[in-house]
Amino acid sequence: MSGILAFSLTAGLLFALGLYGMLTRTGLIHRLLGANIMAAAVFLFLVVLSTRATEAGADPVPEVMVLTGIVISISLTAFGLVLIRYLRAMTGQATLPRSGREGDGHSGDD
């Protein structure tokens, strides 16, 4: 099964790309996209784990965890987006302040 190799590799690299987005972007919506891409990478790896048990059919447990995760992701995204609007209403911008060093690297919405 060729897919297992290709998609495990994709999952690992996707996770790194999502993290890169979260670390380097200042725009909070971009960071939220990065977090969603990292989640997608984890989902992809879980499904690869579920399909490798091919002889007796796929393992339903990881698949169900992914289905749960997809719904949690949209809850998180929806709440995060309203938090970002709230921040913009309070401070006039949708980025974190540059000054506070303690805020570095945390997007505040994950």
């Binding site: 297992i4 190799l5 495990s8 590799l9 999952a11 690992g12 690299l13 996770f15 790194a16 790309l17 993290l19 890169y20 670390l23 380097t24 790896f45 690869v48 784990l49 490798r52 048990a53 002889e55 007796a56 059919g57 393992d59």
Partner: peptide, 27 residues
């Protein structure tokens, strides 16, 4: 620095994932 960290992480994760996924596991 972020690119360096993410490249390293991506490489390590991919290798680990390929190894984990290569083991067949039965339900």
């Amino acid at each position: 620095p972020a690119a360096l960290i993410c490249t390293g992480l991506g490489a390590v994760l991919s290798i680990v994932m390929i190894q984990v996924a290569a083991n067949r596991a039965a339900v």
